[in-house]
Amino acid sequence: MSAPDTFPAVMTTQQDTGRWRLYVAIYGVPASQWPEYVFDGATVPSVRDRSRALDALGYTFTASPEWGWIEDYVPGDDPAQPVSLFASAQVRKVAS
């Protein structure tokens, strides 16, 4: 369980463009209003790139910039098809 002032930062690929999208899931706020950053290109953003994106959104890591990765797929799909990858890390809002 995370502290009330921490949130999950999630990074995943956009299915339609292949670009990586990072967003901060804020509890009690509609997903359409979550802060987000879309990276240029289809290459997986480096940890430094992710840190810079979080800085631009006004967030920072709660501890080390360690990301956990999850592989997702739709059961029954063709196993030769690419899977979706999700990365997450805990962040907090930077005091202004």
Rank of each mutant, 00 (worst) to 15 (best):
19 R>V: 06
53 A>E: 07
12 T>I: 12
45 P>W: 13
36 E>M: 10
26 I>S: 01
35 P>K: 08
33 Q>W: 01
43 T>I: 00
42 A>F: 00
46 S>E: 15
14 Q>V: 00
18 G>F: 05
24 V>N: 02
49 D>T: 09
4 P>W: 03
40 D>M: 14
33 Q>Y: 03
36 E>S: 07
12 T>C: 15
21 R>Y: 11
24 V>I: 14
36 E>T: 04
22 L>N: 09
21 R>W: 12
17 T>V: 10
5 D>N: 10
43 T>A: 04
52 R>V: 06
50 R>I: 11
31 A>L: 05
35 P>H: 09
55 D>M: 01
26 I>K: 11
28 G>I: 14
6 T>L: 08
45 P>Q: 12
16 D>T: 11
26 I>Q: 08
34 W>T: 01
14 Q>F: 00
13 T>V: 09
16 D>Y: 09
45 P>N: 08
12 T>W: 07
32 S>E: 14
26 I>R: 10
36 E>F: 08
18 G>V: 06
21 R>D: 11
49 D>W: 03
53 A>M: 10
53 A>T: 08
7 F>R: 01
11 M>C: 12
38 V>F: 04
27 Y>N: 15
43 T>P: 00
8 P>D: 12
32 S>V: 15
36 E>D: 09
34 W>L: 02
24 V>C: 06
18 G>D: 06
56 A>P: 03
12 T>G: 15
52 R>C: 01
56 A>C: 05
4 P>A: 05
27 Y>H: 14
44 V>H: 07
33 Q>F: 06
17 T>Q: 09
29 V>T: 13
7 F>G: 00
56 A>K: 10
34 W>G: 02
55 D>K: 03
37 Y>Q: 15
16 D>S: 10
7 F>V: 00
37 Y>I: 14
28 G>F: 14
53 A>D: 05
38 V>N: 02
22 L>K: 06
9 A>G: 12
40 D>K: 14
47 V>E: 07
38 V>T: 13
49 D>L: 03
19 R>N: 15
11 M>Y: 03
22 L>Q: 09
45 P>A: 10
27 Y>D: 15
54 L>E: 13
43 T>S: 03
31 A>Y: 08
39 F>M: 05
13 T>M: 09
22 L>H: 10
35 P>E: 11
14 Q>L: 03
49 D>S: 14
57 L>C: 01
27 Y>E: 15
48 R>K: 06
6 T>M: 12
25 A>W: 08
21 R>I: 02
23 Y>L: 15
13 T>E: 10
19 R>C: 15
57 L>S: 02
11 M>T: 08
23 Y>R: 11
33 Q>L: 09
40 D>N: 14
40 D>T: 13
40 D>R: 14
15 Q>C: 00
6 T>H: 05
45 P>Y: 13
29 V>L: 15
25 A>H: 14
16 D>G: 00
21 R>N: 10
23 Y>H: 15
57 L>E: 02
22 L>R: 08
56 A>M: 10
28 G>W: 14
13 T>N: 04
11 M>F: 09
44 V>P: 02
11 M>Q: 07
17 T>A: 14
43 T>K: 04
55 D>P: 01
52 R>L: 04
36 E>H: 11
11 M>W: 05
38 V>G: 04
11 M>H: 02
32 S>K: 13
45 P>H: 12
28 G>H: 11
